[in-house]
Design a protein around this nucleic acid. Structure first.
Lengths: 221, 221
DNA sequence: GTCTATATCCTGATAGAC
DNA sequence: GTCTATCAGGATATAGAC
């Protein structure tokens, strides 16, 4: 169901790149930007995820990308624009995953399992981009925050929609649909906070566990 | 059950103070530090929660506390020490709440409802301190991080313990105890990320909803 | 214990040569 | 498009008077 997400080797570059690229391909899959711009985005993603937006310096990003500090500004107008690009692409990718999982499943139960499982797995496999998406949001400038907020609302809406369908078919019993959607997303989002490749759990195991927990949370008694 | 948490007026100072004070009292309840040190901690908590640790300046903290920048250093050796004090006290308080809720409940089901409900409510009522505790953790220096890590493990342990009890009594059916404990805590922790007083949900409503969701997640079929 | 003043270093971003 | 050099301001923290 979520097989459009490739399973890349545990290299940070490939990992973040896979999360940024809609087709899961190589550099040209990011498509609308140059090779150097991609390198800068990958460098910034590493740095932001590791140290946070404000603790990351432009020199840090530049050196990771193999450029001088000035070289970054040919491609991005500011450090905040770089955060915005990562945030926007990451949110889009996460939303696309959820929508694809919802559409591919035959029943609301299967859809919910695939969505929460897949979303949780994504936040583990791509925990660097996941952290940026979920935890650096408030450091965007207001106009950029507003744009990303639309994507966040779409994500909430997809989950709530599946819950409503499940209630309609009688598969689910949900007292508070938006509240439950929020709690389900919280479980998955929080994975990005605690997951690292050093941890004993695997993204696949997380997908399995969290998908089942989601179904337990809403299934009719 | 969680009535040891006072319901303060919606003033940020009182709110953070209540979360810092073991007895829920006034300034002297924080006890081991001077009045001015408390004022600085409250100012720092406001600033860290609002803008994040690295985006907060020492001038920012000082002016919120009504001091000159130099005035802060009489009471705290560095900005990071201030973060550590807030983090340590906040973690202790959160752990104490969980332990009290676990001990006061007659059954594992009641205990889990009270723990997850109360922990969620705490992350709403004290969302400022909650954000610091949960999301500024990585900005601590290694030795301080280690000390706080002990408190975090105690929190995990209390929840896992109640799950084990519930499995033993037959009330719960849990495949993966540490994984489920983690997911339950994730739901509650993530409240601090999205909650603000502007949001439509109330801390009391969150307590009710999340307590019930927790029970649904683990109860035997 | 608090202040004013400041040391010292670092920050995001730009100018202009190549 | 990339570099070296640098600007202008801001950062944490300290010195020393009161």
């Amino acid at each position: 169901m979520l097989s459009t997400v490739p399973s890349p080797p545990p290299l940070s570059e490939t990992d973040v790149l896979a999360a940024l690229a809609p087709e899961g391909g190589r550099h040209e899959a990011v498509g609308d930007v140059t090779d150097t711009a991609v390198r800068i985005m990958l460098a910034a993603a590493d740095a932001f995820a590791e140290r946070g937006f404000h603790a990351t310096t432009t020199r840090d990003i530049a050196s990771r990308a193999g450029l001088s500090p000035a070289g970054v500004y040919v491609h991005f107008a500011s450090k905040e624009v770089l955060l915005f690009e990562l945030s926007r692409r990451g949110h889009s990718r996460a939303r696309d995953l959820l929508v694809a999982a919802a559409q591919a499943a035959p029943t609301p139960t299967d859809a919910l399992r695939a969505m929460v499982g897949g979303f949780s797995r994504w936040h583990a496999e791509h925990y660097e981009l996941g952290r940026i998406v979920q935890f650096e949001f408030r450091h965007l400038r207001p106009e950029h925050r507003d744009e990303v907020l639309h994507l966040r609302k779409e994500i909430d809406h997809v989950v709530a929609g599946v819950l409503r369908e499940g209630v309609a078919t009688g598969e689910f019993e949900v007292v508070d649909i938006p509240g439950t959607a929020l709690a389900l997303l919280s479980m998955a989002i929080d994975v990005a906070r605690w997951y690292t490749p050093d941890v004993r759990r695997t993204p696949e195991g997380i997908e399995e566990t969290y998908g089942e927990l989601a179904v337990r949370l809403v299934r009719a008694a």
